[in-house]
């Protein structure tokens, strides 16, 4: 079996090659369809039941049905415009289904208070979105009375530290800004993290550092839903990948048995 870590560049590439060769792909198999279909499991984090999202007469999702397991990193892959981001946005109620249902831990997500839900289910966006002001201001925007130790913890989890606090958040590089956004999300202490192509604006080196810090976070029990158009990346970081095409579930790849990201 493949070595655990799979987070360094070399390992990642090797793993991607092996993964595709070893036919972990179960697209369209009866199991996959069943799993993507109406089988509910206790440990499901999110379940999508025949979800349709329509905007200006265009269907972003067209009967999407799938389950997201409760732990580890779940990737969401598909061509651009396939509805990946919409799936993610349904998970923190930035979007609501036109029809169908989304369940979060077996409860209809529509019944949650959206503001409380969003603190439990944090989101990091494709483009870094630092707010004007210092890094400290950014953290306080998330938790207005955050203490120094709380800030320290959040910064560390995003591979930063307290020396960053007084830096101008809008003058940082893409990778730095994205880590600040990550810290800003983590300071609300979510137990689920939604990542919407978080590395697409970053250079290769930063990408791997970002992947490493997410892997680290999952070790501490954070569940991650990671949207990416980059299947190789998802193979590096995810335990399972949901595929989506034309707004519909299009199979999944499960990397089950991969010793869950134990760094070698």
């Amino acid at each position: 079996m493949v070595g655990g870590g799979v987070t360094t560049a070399a390992n990642g590439v090797a793993w991607a090659m092996i993964a595709s060769r070893e036919a972990l792909v179960v697209d369209g198999s009866p199991e996959a369809r069943r799993y993507g279909g109406d089988v509910t499991r206790d440990e499901d984090l999110f379940r999508f039941d025949d979800v349709v999202v329509e905007r200006f007469g265009i269907r972003a999702l067209d009967g999407f049905t799938a389950c997201v397991p409760a732990t580890g990193v779940t990737g969401v892959a598909g061509p651009s415009g396939s509805g990946k981001s919409t799936v993610l946005r349904l998970c923190n109620r930035m979007e609501v289904p036109t029809s169908g249902q989304v369940h979060f831990r077996r409860t209809d997500i529509a019944t949650f208070d959206p503001l409380a839900l969003r603190r439990q289910v944090g989101m990091v966006f494709q483009r870094p979105t630092p707010f004007p002001g210092t890094v400290r201001d950014n953290l306080l925007a998330a938790v207005p009375h955050a203490g120094r130790s709380q800030m320290d913890a959040a910064l560390r989890r995003a591979s930063l530290d307290l020396t960053w606090l007084e830096r101008d958040a809008t003058a940082l590089s893409g990778g730095e800004a994205q880590r600040v956004c990550m810290a800003r999300t983590l300071i609300t202490e979510p137990d689920v993290l939604l990542l919407d192509e978080p590395t697409s604006a970053l250079d290769a080196e930063t990408v791997h550092a970002f992947e490493d810090s997410v892997t680290e976070l999952t070790r501490n029990g954070l569940a991650v839903l990671w949207v990416s158009h980059d299947l190789a990346q998802l193979r590096r970081v995810a335990d399972m990948v949901l595929r989506i095409e034309n707004g519909r579930y299009a199979g999944e790849e499960r990397f089950g048995g991969v010793p869950g990201h134990e760094e070698g």
């Binding site: 707010f131 004007p132 998330a142």
Partner: peptide
Amino acid sequence: RDEVEARLALGQPARQAATP
């Protein structure tokens, strides 16, 4: 929009997210 939604995603109510 990204910035506004980032504020909302942190659990800020709409009124607060819109303030700036």
